[in-house]
Write a protein that binds this DNA or RNA. Structure first.
Length: 154
DNA sequence: GCCAACGTTGGC
DNA sequence: GCCAACGTTGGC
């Protein structure tokens, strides 16, 4: 079982939006970065857990925990000319882009702010905190995961 | 709104 | 294959 972090802008789709979805499940479409795609395609398994991270907002940080409810499968928005995520290279034979389904496990009563994560020495190696990091899907080590879970409960 | 960092594109 | 130009991300 692996751990992940997935970013979303709460103005576009936040943890509360996920909570309102049927079965509190949503296809994580629109990822258009190869590294992020590869994490989803090659790394994510059904049952893996991920932090739901709010980016580009007043209080960036971890807002909740989600479970990977479905492993990677083709992202249909890549083949929809009406979609902002449209990619003319995508076809039935070669979907190019994939998505996973995420299901809400828990919305944190007290989100773990980026500011707090940055202040903790044991988390200094976190990929999220590295300079210039822009990936929307990132791996999290079990050690990091456990530390953050404790913070969320504190 | 600014800007650093990074990925992608496209001319050569 | 190089690299400048451009677009995007995301914290502040």
């Amino acid at each position: 079982m692996a751990y992940w972090l997935m970013k979303s802008e709460p103005d576009a789709f936040g943890i509360d939006d996920l909570a309102k979805r049927p079965k509190q499940t949503e296809p994580w479409n629109g990822v258009r970065n190869y590294q992020a795609r590869n994490f989803m395609r090659d790394g994510m398994k059904k049952g893996d857990l991920a932090f739901f991270y709010h980016s580009s907002c007043a209080e960036p940080g971890i807002a909740g925990i989600v479970e990977i409810a479905h492993a990677a499968y083709p992202d249909p928005t890549a083949r929809d000319p009406e979609s902002p995520y449209y990619d003319p290279r995508a076809s039935a034979d070669n979907p190019v882009w994939v998505m996973v389904d995420v299901r809400l496990k828990k919305k944190l009563k007290h989100p773990v702010a980026l500011k707090l994560l940055k202040s903790l020495k044991p988390l200094a190696g976190m990929q999220l905190l590295q300079r210039g990091n822009r990936l929307s899907v990132l791996p999290v080590t079990k050690k990091e995961w456990d530390i953050i879970i404790k913070l969320a409960k504190a």
